[in-house]
Nucleic acid binder design. Structure first.
Lengths: 219, 219
DNA sequence: CGGTGGATTAACCGCTCGGTCAAACCCTTC
DNA sequence: GAAGGGTTTGACCGAGCGGTTAATCCACCG
């Protein structure tokens, strides 16, 4: 707990932070493969050995950046959960939050997906974070979805997440097949948002046929 | 076109095939990172240089295996499309086919997802195959879904694919958070199948409210 | 039998990676 | 000005990678 005062030419804390930020930018720009000790050092304007002086390994560097992403993501969802409204409104709001965060952190989606799909070395860390996110989401979905059967809340969670996440990873990879428009343009993202809303409305209709949702904005 | 007759100790064709199969097994067991020239050679009981003698690069080897996966996948979908029935039955059938193929080729899902998420060197090849698959799927979805708006067929295709694919990559990565049961067990897969069916039924209900689908088998 | 040519191999190359180490640097303190 | 210690560095290491090369093997053929 001994607080170190700042020293003229960057105290320990500052240097460590500089390197961490270099790693974060590098990760965002070059992806997982681009996060090499050499590249981090170059980006931070520092010798390679210094990276290991402040961070024991590049793996630790990666996980620290990942923690940041997840912490902000989780917090955004928690905030979105706290707003009042009907279940339908609340689900729509959490979808918007999810989409907004993905849009603002496009690399993040792919970094996670890469680790999960490739059973990467950081899968355990990703697992912990995924579970924490699921916990938040289930708080809402569990209110109106059963815990068993084909409409079980955990399936809805996974499906909802898939609808959002896979758009960012797959639509741009479909190229011309997707259509003439850029799927990550503003209009493209709005279209996807409307689609996900449409899907959850369909779910809610089926879960509670009595209280049909507001008129479909389809057309 | 000059057909080479087989030679006693494995003709060119046989050797090349042996190496290709070694690569396929290796890829299935160890994943993308495990596909190194050295490992392929060891697995085929052959010198490393021979791998390059028959296949110009490990990249070509990978893409050849990928082509196999995709060709079988596409064919399965085409066959599933040819059966008669109501739109609902046909969609359910194509979902079953999709799920069956993923279940039988679990590595395949992850290999593709890894390439797409990581913008891997084989993304162009994956793109071509993804587009071909989408073309097949759109043949069915386009029959009853609009081409524009929140329920556009291309969104339905991407979402349907996401529902299937992400289950295989994410559910096992959720660990205890998913629940006590193995998501890839027979029971777990059946549950997911029922869920995806439930989702598309919800879609169809919303697309054509007049002809509500068969009674929901929801618990 | 000896030659020919495809099949096969050991050895090697250049490169990049994560990580280490001992020396040098520089600021503080006495 | 010397000692000390946290900070910074260039040089180095071993491992693994994709890929090449020159030599060898060996089955066939004239």
């Amino acid at each position: 707990m001994s607080a170190v005062v700042e020293h003229p030419k960057g105290s320990t804390k500052i240097r460590a932070q500089q390197i961490l930020e270099a790693a974060e930018h590098l990760l965002a720009e070059e992806g997982y493969e681009g996060l090499t000790a050499q590249a981090v050092a170059r980006r931070a304007g520092v010798n390679k050995a210094l990276v290991f002086y402040y961070w024991s390994s590049t793996a630790q560097l990666f996980e620290r950046v990942l923690e940041r992403y997840y912490a902000r993501h989780r917090q955004a969802l928690v905030d979105a959960l706290s707003v009042q409204g009907s279940p339908r409104e609340r689900v729509h709001h959490i979808i918007d939050t999810y989409l907004d965060y993905m849009e603002a952190n496009r690399r993040y989606v792919r970094l996670v997906q890469q680790q999960v799909a490739g059973r990467g070395p950081h899968l355990p860390a990703v697992q912990r974070h995924l579970a924490a996110l699921m916990e938040v989401s289930m708080g809402l979905l569990g209110e109106f979805a059963p815990s068993q059967g084909p409409a079980a809340a955990r399936h809805l969670h996974l499906s909802l997440s898939a609808l959002v996440v896979n758009y960012f990873t797959y639509a741009p990879a479909l190229g011309e097949a997707w259509g003439p428009d850029d799927p990550l343009s503003l209009a493209g993202l709005e279209e996807r948002r409307a689609h996900v809303h449409w899907v959850v409305d369909a779910w809610l209709d089926r879960l509670h046929p009595k209280a049909r949702s507001a008129p479909s904005r389809q057309g």
